[in-house]
Design a protein around this nucleic acid. Structure first.
Lengths: 339, 339
DNA sequence: CTGAAAGCGCTTACAG
DNA sequence: CTGAAAGCGCTTACAG
């Protein structure tokens, strides 16, 4: 099948190609009658403008990029990214923007991808995930002047736009809830060290632990996998003066932690309370279902997409604060059983 | 920053733009010395060919498309797609192909996306997931002559290329394993009705049940969510003459089923054996870990990508049979406890 | 309000 | 082996 072009429309409408372009893009320069006639013809023959030609004429590529830096098995098991992508997509497709996805091995590869995308003019802007405390991607994107929205923060985003949530506040709320239930020994399995939100949460955990005067508030880093979550849990539960509550930095580790408790013959929530960050549908699959800190991730993605499209249009944008995660108590938390 | 073009390279090398193009693309028409000089300059100034200009010159778009038809929460929780995408990506990025992702609401929207992509020349080919028994997407792609690889089968793919696995054989292996353990009442929670692999598995289940002379072999459809998996499990376990083993069409439902068994006070595997299809890392998060039918999904995606790239190059390709899923016995299956 | 033309940055026959 | 030129399908100043 031959693809229709504006030349075909121009011929059928008896006008110039320029007129077709003006009519289809809502530009002044054609009479309303002509515009309607041209639009009707375009619809009739199923015209879609060649994206390459459009991009080459100085317009935008009508595509944005997302580079994901995780190995396959972790990427698959974390619901976060797919939910984020869904939300991003909803916003993009309403504006006929395409999402270009690339899985990368590390930050260097990711930076190379940005440089290539920029050189190829393949995307008009990018989303930046997994913000680090001292992130090398930020200065590169600033230098390239490639519109970008950082998904994370606050701060450490240089002059780039961002969408962030107050994780510290959410963690404090969780600590106070556990404290109110009577927990005095609380442990935490954190995320990947070096990620900004890992540091923010860790700091908030330590501060809250001191402020509440907990007997114990240990935190260990991890890599978000179930194995690491299980290992950390085993270590915590084997220690003398074991914690009565554990907070996990993602849902996958929390589920693994629950299994370890069951395996060690500890009752949840009787002997151990469990809280998961990221409240995906996974948290309601277990017995007992997991108390979790959650928020609307697709909406988060949609906000990021809206920010990025605005940045591409050259609008001045800064940091957008998304809703704070809220705690949904389920069966995995309760007052600690008196010893 | 100004993007370098072949004109910049040509000027610095003292040759024509055409010569630069030939040199960079490995075409004959330039001396080896000139070629090396040009390549060196391109590297030095960090040249990347403008993808739009390239696509417009009749070459390919260097991008392929993947449309996913699932709501956000299901998409997020199913590790399958992200693992598939990882594998697809690995193959594509080695060839500097981009992956364009689009989330769609239904088949009609998906078909509209294909028509738009084709008209825009945005992609050189597409992957088709969730093949249905009588799939309306197949004739549309044939009509558009848009290279496509169906991820699924066998059969029902028209003239399109495909990558498939023998699910019937995998299911039979599972049934025989359960039979050998002593199970005579086996139930199955299937996937979305209408999907080809749902039908193939259902048929294989029924056939194997009859051949083995099982007392009971019931199968119900579902939608892959944990809620549906839990509901079906509750119904099975509440019935008189309840099954001693249940096979689930994905890992998410199997985990939900395990939680229901625990909630109802049934021991797994003592009172109930559980088998999950799709052996993602989720299956090893539970206590007991789940016996699962798995195969290398990233590799499956990589094979699909290889097929699609071959199709785009105009090579004749047909149906590629991937490895059959194999059973990994874990703690969730055992001989049924004598009543 | 409309047409003719230049230009985006490549690729690729076509002459020399 | 190399250069000059046409063309891909749009957008957008520039004349009429």
């Amino acid at each position: 099948m031959k693809r229709p072009t504006i030349a075909d429309i121009a011929r059928r409408a008896g006008v110039s190609k320029g007129a077709v372009s003006y009519a289809l893009n809502g530009q002044p320069g054609v009479s309303e009658a002509t515009r309607q006639r041209i639009i009707a013809i375009a619809q009739e023959i199923g015209f879609n403008p060649n994206s390459a030609a459009r991009a080459l004429s100085g317009a935008t590529a009508n595509a944005v990029g997302l580079a994901l830096c995780r190995p396959a098995r972790i990427l698959g098991i974390e619901p976060f990214f797919m939910e984020l992508i869904s939300g991003v997509e909803a916003e993009l497709s309403a504006r006929s923007y395409a999402l270009t996805l690339q899985v990368v091995a590390d930050q260097e590869a990711e930076i190379a991808v940005y440089r290539r995308w920029w050189g190829e003019r393949r995307v008009d802007g990018v989303f930046v995930c997994d913000l680090r405390v001292d992130d090398r991607r930020v200065p590169v994107l600033e230098e390239l002047q490639l519109p970008a929205v950082v998904i994370g923060g606050p701060g450490h985003t240089g002059s780039l736009a961002s969408v962030w949530a107050d994780d510290a506040a959410a963690l404090v709320e969780t600590m106070e809830y556990l404290f109110a239930l009577g927990h005095r020994r609380i442990a935490r399995v954190g995320g990947l060290p070096g990620l900004l939100h890992t540091e923010i949460r860790r700091q908030a955990f330590v501060d809250a632990g001191q402020r509440l005067g907990l007997e114990q508030s240990v935190t260990v880093p991890s890599d978000y996998t179930g194995e690491e979550g299980a290992r950390a849990t085993r270590r915590f539960l084997s220690s003398s003066g074991r914690p009565t509550a554990i907070i996990y930095d993602n849902d996958v580790m929390a589920i693994a932690g629950l299994a370890v408790a069951q395996e060690m013959g500890l009752a949840v929530p009787g002997d151990l309370s469990i809280v998961a960050w990221d409240d995906s549908a996974l948290c309601q699959l277990t017995h007992p279902p997991l108390t979790a800190l959650g928020r609307d991730i697709p909406a988060y993605g949609a906000h990021a997409a809206r920010q990025l499209l605005a940045a591409i249009e050259g609008k001045p944008i800064g940091a957008y604060q998304d809703e704070t995660a809220h705690l949904t108590p389920r069966g995995s938390t309760a007052a600690p059983r008196p010893v």
